[in-house]
């Protein structure tokens, strides 16, 4: 089984880090999609199926919080696991995102090892 993964971050550097780590971890990948904000991600998710979403919070147009809320309100998208990777370390934000329905919350800077561990946890149970 090969997975489809969506990476949502306005930073090219952040997206590249995640994509490269997935490659290094030898996760069986079918497609790695990238979006620069929540709106691009929601548009893409109308057309393609993904097994896992990595998302930043602080992004232009639709931010990560709003994107997750919209995904959770749609029958087709509500069960897709979302992992937040954000620079925001506030306890209140983490609680807000848990409430919105994210599966994990990692704070930047993350290491490739942290990311590998979380990917293995979610894709093994997918």
């Amino acid at each position: 089984m090969a997975y489809n993964i969506l990476i949502v971050d306005d930073s090219l550097t952040a997206r590249t880090f995640i994509a490269r780590t997935l490659q290094m971890a030898e996760v069986p990948l079918s497609q790695v999609y990238q979006a620069r904000n929540g709106q691009e991600a929601l548009d893409l998710l109308q057309r393609v199926w993904v097994d896992l979403v990595f998302a930043d919070i602080n992004m232009p147009t639709v931010n990560g919080t709003e994107m997750v809320r919209q995904m959770r309100a749609m029958d087709l998208l509500k069960s897709i696991p979302v992992i937040i990777i954000s620079t925001d370390r506030s306890a209140q934000r983490m609680a807000e995102m848990r409430e919105a329905g994210v599966q994990a919350y990692l704070t930047k800077p993350i290491t490739p090892e942290d990311l590998k561990a979380v990917v293995e946890r979610f894709l093994k149970s997918a």
Partner: peptide, 18 residues
């Protein structure tokens, strides 16, 4: 993000611009 975490110790939300 890390700087705000150090100086804003009570964990409240701070919104960053890009």
């Amino acid at each position: 993000g890390n700087y705000l975490h150090r100086v804003e110790r009570n964990g409240r939300i701070v919104n960053l611009t890009t």
